Simulated scan of single mutants.
Amino acid sequence: MIEIIKKTNIDFMGKRYIAFAVSGIFSVLGILAIIAVVRGTANLGIDFAGGTAVQVKFDKTVKLSDVRKALDEGGLTGADLQEFPAVKKVLVVIKKIGSGAIDTKSASTSAGVSDKVIETLTKGLKDNNLTVDSVSEIGPKVGSRLRTDAMWAVIASVIGILIYVGWRFQFSFSIGATFATFHDVLAVLGVFYVMGYEINLILLTALLTIAGYSLTDTVVVFDRIRENLRAMIKEPVTNVINKSINEVLSRTLVTSLTVFFASLALYFFGGEVLHDFALAMALGVIVGTYSSVFVASPVVLLWAGDKQLVKK
């Protein structure tokens, strides 16, 4: 209904090797991120690392620097802090893996850690009364199990995509869709890892959402390719794929921009809780749109060559 870009004739397949080089770099970053997650050396949230999260509400506005100072003086160095100034709340997160935030001998249980956090803040900020909103505790074994389950969830989703696209189209198309989905997940995960963002269940949720979005966008392109392959039997497959992508380019951009602007709105106005999710979605939309054009379709071409992809 809305054509941002009018009729185009871009040789997308002619640029596939440059795109593969760029995609390879982002995929390597994603693989490194996965290795770091498995080894526990990445910036893991308490969902995966295990630890304690205590959210407290103060009577008066408090500065994070004052909270940090109180925790440091109480021996809780290295805690992660998150501020909610509109409601005068602060979230204190102490991880088990690599945090060095607390002597585990003096507080061997999660309850001991949360009690020490509350006691330290109460003593260090005497002029500002606080109440405990919530306490979340995850043991190291549970965090390790969640990391494993998270990876299996991503693998299971990709296998499901492989089966679905193979059933709806044919095997070469499912290979392209699978590569594109893996590419998108690895690229966003790699960017978060390099930028030092926390890797947690919220990011996993975003990655699975991105996989679904990428598949939807890819299927639209594949549908047009299949239609044109049947209508342009004598044309080389390369020409058919280029024509198909050009025909759906405007639709792809309209959809992508809609989701992208919605993600930006969540990023700027959705609050701290949705910050990382919205950022991952914004990056995922860009990467997913790119992969539908420069990863999924070129992989189909490389896998099947210029041979006939559909029955007459």
Rank of each mutant, 00 (worst) to 15 (best):
I2S: 03
E3S: 11
I4A: 03
I4V: 14
I4S: 01
K7M: 02
K7F: 11
K7E: 13
F12W: 05
F12H: 04
G14L: 06
G14E: 05
K15W: 03
Y17D: 12
Y17E: 09
I18R: 11
A19M: 03
A19R: 07
A19T: 04
A21V: 10
G24T: 02
I25T: 11
S27Q: 03
A36F: 10
G40W: 12
G40C: 11
A42T: 13
A42E: 14
A49D: 13
G50R: 13
T52R: 03
K63H: 08
K69V: 01
K69T: 02
L71P: 10
D72R: 02
E73K: 07
G75E: 08
L76H: 00
G78Y: 05
G78R: 07
Q82K: 10
P85D: 02
P85A: 01
A86W: 00
V87I: 15
K89N: 08
G98D: 14
A101H: 12
S106Q: 09
T109A: 02
S110R: 06
A111G: 12
A111R: 11
V113D: 09
V113Q: 11
D115R: 07
D115E: 07
V117Y: 03
I118P: 09
K123H: 05
G124W: 12
L125M: 13
D127W: 14
L130A: 05
T131V: 15
T131L: 14
S134K: 15
L146C: 07
T148H: 14
T148M: 15
A153W: 07
S157H: 10
I159W: 15
G160P: 04
Y164F: 09
V165E: 07
G166R: 08
F171C: 08
S172W: 14
F173T: 04
S174G: 13
S174Y: 12
I175M: 08
I175E: 05
T178V: 15
T178D: 12
F179N: 04
F182R: 02
F182I: 15
D184Y: 06
L186S: 07
A187P: 06
Y193N: 05
M195W: 06
G196V: 08
G196P: 06
Y197N: 01
I199L: 10
N200S: 15
L201S: 13
A211F: 10
L215P: 00
T216N: 12
V221K: 00
I225L: 02
I225E: 01
R226Y: 04
E227W: 06
E227N: 09
E227H: 06
A231K: 06
I233N: 04
P236G: 04
P236R: 04
P236N: 07
V237W: 01
V240M: 05
V240W: 04
V240R: 02
I241W: 00
N242Q: 00
S244W: 09
S256V: 00
S256R: 00
S256Q: 03
F260D: 01
F261S: 00
A262G: 02
L264I: 03
F269Y: 07
G270P: 07
G270F: 11
G271N: 08
E272P: 09
V273Y: 01
D276G: 06
G284K: 00
V287I: 10
T289H: 08
S292P: 05
V293S: 01
V299K: 03
V300R: 04
L302M: 07
D306E: 15
Q308M: 13
K311P: 11
K311A: 13
